[in-house]
Each structure stands twice: as structure tokens, then as C-alpha cells.
Lab assay of single mutants.
Amino acid sequence: MFKRLMMVALLVIAPLSAATAADQTNPYKLMDEAAQKTFDRLKNEQPQIRANPDYLRTIVDQELLPYVQVKYAGALVLGQYYKSATPAQREAYFAAFREYLKQAYGQALAMYHGQTYQIAPEQPLGDKTIVPIRVTIIDPNGRPPVRLDFQWRKNSQTGNWQAYDMIAEGVSMITTKQNEWGTLLRTKGIDGLTAQLKSISQQKITLEEKK
């Protein structure tokens, strides 16, 4: 169930391209415009997507990853294993993690069937560096609404905000991946996880038929 919630949630996290980005210092504006741009692209490019579902990787690479804190999220997933990894191991892992996100997020976007969304009203940021933004996803086919909290983090150097995690039903996506990959990290280390991520990233994206 959580895996499905995570995939549905990713439908609204794909941010804007650099040329049309919203105010990078306001995570609420980023979330709002990102959702609108993403849904528009999914709707307008269905012919290309249906002809070649792996085209979704391109959308992810162009529109999402430049505005997601990939390395920060990847380091959180590694936890204690990050500090013990060599620079070469980290570089290989982050490259594999990025390719994994292209496949995983692309597969999530393949679930698009006309969903709509509501974003919580903007709250004062103050001096906060981590801000959760509640998004409610509404399914046109009558499924119950899904309420999610996207975690946005302020870059201490640039002042810009980027998304790095999502919490559904009190469970963090980062925590879920830590639990899912924990045994592999304990037995085969970061190299074993890197190899698995490379394998997963090679899987073809498949479209979910409308139910």
C-alpha cells in the first residue's frame, strides 16, 4: 500500500525546468507551479508516452532531478554507511541512485490517469530550513484521497528550496528505503546496493492501464 502511495505522490513532485522555475526561495510556489507544469506535460505528451513509456525517463531527467536534492536524499538512505564509504564508492552510488530515480519516478508518472491535487495554504517560513507541505491527491475514479507531506529543505548556501522526502501515513519514503535496503547494505555494503540500483534502473517502464 505504501509503495502505491509513494508512486501516486511522485506525480506531483516533478519540479519546473530552470527556464520557467518559480521563486526558488518559496517552496509553496515551487510546489504549486511544479504540480501544474507536471500535470500539463503528462496530459499533453501522452502520444509520446504511450508510444514509448521510457520517454518518461527524459521527462524526469529534464523536469524533476535538477530540483530534487538527489545527493542529500541518497546520503540519508545510506545512513551510517555513508561515512564509511570511499569517495569513489559515493560517486558510483550517487550515479546509480540518480539512474534509479529516473526509472522509479518514471514508473510513478506512468500512473497518471487524470488525477488532480490540492496544496495546503502557504504558511510563514520564518527562519525554518525544513518545511512540510501537505498535498491532497484526488483520484477521478473514486479512490479515497491521498494526503501527503512533502519535505522541502532550504539550501544554506543559495537560499533555494528543494524537495527531498515524502511522508505518507506517518511513514517517510527515506525511512522506507532504509528499511528495504538495510539488509543488503549490511551483507554486501554500498557496492552491493550500487549494483542492485544499476540493475533496477535497467527495467523498462510500463504503463498502468486505467481501472
Rank of each mutant, 00 (worst) to 15 (best):
V70F: 05
G182M: 14
E208C: 15
D191S: 06
Q48N: 13
R57Y: 15
A96I: 15
A85Q: 06
Q24W: 13
I167V: 14
N26M: 14
V70W: 05
Y28D: 12
K177A: 13
R186M: 06
G192F: 09
G192Q: 12
I167M: 13
P27Q: 06
M6V: 06
G159H: 09
N179H: 08
A51H: 14
D40F: 05
Q69L: 01
Q123T: 14
Q203A: 08
A88W: 10
A34H: 04
Y105F: 03
F94L: 10
S84N: 07
R186P: 00
Y105H: 04
R50I: 15
Q123E: 05
L207W: 14
V77R: 01
R134T: 02
M31N: 05
T25D: 11
L11D: 01
L197C: 10
K204H: 12
P47D: 05
K198R: 13
L109V: 14
K204F: 15
R41K: 09
Q36F: 15
T194I: 12
E180K: 02
N44G: 12
A18M: 15
M6I: 10
N160C: 08
Q157L: 12
Q118Y: 11
I205A: 14
T86W: 02
D23V: 12
A19Y: 03
G192R: 07
E169K: 02
L207N: 14
Q203H: 10
A85R: 03
R4S: 08
N52S: 11
G126K: 12
A120P: 11
Q157R: 08
L5Y: 08
L109G: 06
I130N: 05
G114M: 06
A95D: 08
Q24M: 12
A34T: 13
I200L: 15
I137M: 06
T58H: 08
L101V: 13
Y164L: 04
Y81P: 03
Q178C: 03
N26H: 07
V8S: 04
R41H: 04
N44K: 14
Y81W: 10
L193Q: 05
T136M: 10
A51C: 12
Q69G: 11
Y105D: 04
P140Y: 08
T206H: 07
F97H: 15
P27F: 04
Y93R: 00
E122T: 11
N26W: 05
E209I: 12
L101A: 15
T20W: 14
E63F: 00
A35W: 13
Q62L: 06
G159Q: 05
I137C: 15
T20K: 09
Q107K: 05
A92M: 07
G182A: 14
M1C: 00
A110S: 13
Q24D: 13
P144S: 08
N179W: 06
F2Y: 06
R4K: 13
T183E: 05
T176P: 00
D23S: 15
L185Y: 05
V135N: 05
A22W: 08
E169C: 04
E33Y: 04
A51F: 09
E63S: 06
F39Y: 02
P144L: 12
N160I: 10
A163K: 05
K188F: 04
A34K: 05
T183G: 09
V12I: 11
N160A: 11
L78W: 03
M173Q: 02
L5E: 00
R186W: 02
M173V: 05
Y93P: 00
V8A: 11
R98M: 07
P66A: 07
Q48P: 13
S199K: 15
T58I: 10
K177Q: 15
M166G: 06
Q115M: 02
R98L: 08
D191I: 04
M31I: 03
E33R: 05
N160D: 05
Q48D: 12
Y112K: 01
Q69F: 01
Q196K: 14
K102V: 14
R186V: 01
F2Q: 01
A96W: 08
Q151R: 05
Q48E: 13
L109K: 02
N44R: 14
D127C: 09
L76Y: 04
K128H: 04
V131D: 04
S201K: 07
G159A: 11
Q118H: 12
A9T: 05
Q24F: 05
K128L: 07
K188C: 08
P140W: 12
T206D: 14
P124S: 13
Q24I: 12
V68G: 02
V12Q: 03
E33V: 13
G74N: 00
L197T: 15
A92L: 13
V171M: 12
S17T: 13
P132F: 05
N52D: 12
Q48H: 07
I130C: 03
I49D: 05
K154T: 06
Q196P: 05
H113T: 13
P87L: 10
Q80C: 04
M1E: 00
A95Y: 07
G142V: 09
P53Y: 07
N52E: 14
A14V: 10
A195Q: 13
T86S: 12
A19Q: 02
K177W: 10
S201N: 15
G182V: 11
N44E: 15
L30W: 09
I190A: 06
D127E: 06
V8W: 15
A19P: 04
I167E: 04
E122M: 06
P53A: 12
P47R: 13
G74P: 00
P145I: 05
R153E: 02
A21M: 08
Q46N: 08
P145K: 05
L184P: 09
E99W: 06
T176I: 05
Q62T: 07
S172F: 00
P47K: 06
A34E: 12
V68W: 00
I59R: 00
D32T: 07
Y100D: 14
L101P: 02
T136H: 14
K29F: 13
Q151N: 06
D127R: 05
L193Y: 10
E45F: 04
Y105T: 00
T25C: 12
F94W: 10
W152F: 05
Q115P: 03
A104D: 04
Y117C: 04
Q202V: 12
D149V: 04
T175D: 10
M1D: 00
V77E: 15
P53R: 10
T25S: 12
E208D: 10
R186Y: 02
R41T: 06
Y105Q: 02
E91F: 05
E208G: 13
N155K: 06
A110R: 09
Q80K: 08
D40I: 13
M1W: 00
H113C: 06
V171N: 01
W181N: 15
Q202P: 14
N44S: 12
I13V: 06
T183F: 09
P140R: 14
R57E: 15
A110K: 14
L64G: 00
W152P: 00
W181E: 15
Q118C: 13
Y105M: 02
R143S: 04
N141M: 11
E169H: 02
N155Y: 01
R57T: 12
A104R: 02
I137P: 05
E180H: 02
T25Q: 12
P87E: 08
L76P: 01
Q203R: 09
R50V: 07
V135A: 04
G74Y: 01
A19E: 03
P124Q: 13
G74F: 00
A195Y: 10
Y100Q: 15
T116W: 09
I174R: 03
Y112W: 03
T176M: 02
N52I: 03
S199G: 13
T175W: 10
P145Y: 04
Q157G: 04
Y28R: 08
A195C: 13
K210T: 15
T86D: 14
I137V: 13
I174D: 12
S156W: 01
Q103K: 08
L125E: 12
Q151A: 08
K83D: 01
K37H: 12
L16N: 00
I13C: 08
K37Q: 08
Q80M: 08
I119Q: 12
G74C: 03
L65S: 07
A51S: 13
L125Q: 07
A88V: 11
D40Y: 10
P47C: 06
I13H: 03
M166Q: 01
Y72C: 01
G189Q: 12
T206E: 08
P121G: 11
Y100T: 15
L42N: 04
A14M: 14
T86N: 07
I200F: 06
G142W: 11
T86Q: 10
P47I: 08
M166T: 10
Y81D: 11
L42A: 03
Q36K: 07
T187E: 06
S156C: 02
Q162G: 06
L76H: 01
V70L: 05
S84E: 13
L5N: 00
G79D: 02
K43M: 08
T25K: 05
Q203G: 11
M173N: 01
S199A: 12
E63Q: 04
E33T: 07
K154Y: 02
I59N: 02
D191P: 05
G106E: 02
F150K: 00
T206M: 13
K71L: 01
A22T: 11
K211Y: 11
D54L: 06
Y28V: 14
A104C: 08
A108G: 14
D23P: 14
R147P: 02
L101R: 04
P144C: 04
L148G: 03
T116P: 15
Y55V: 09
N141K: 07
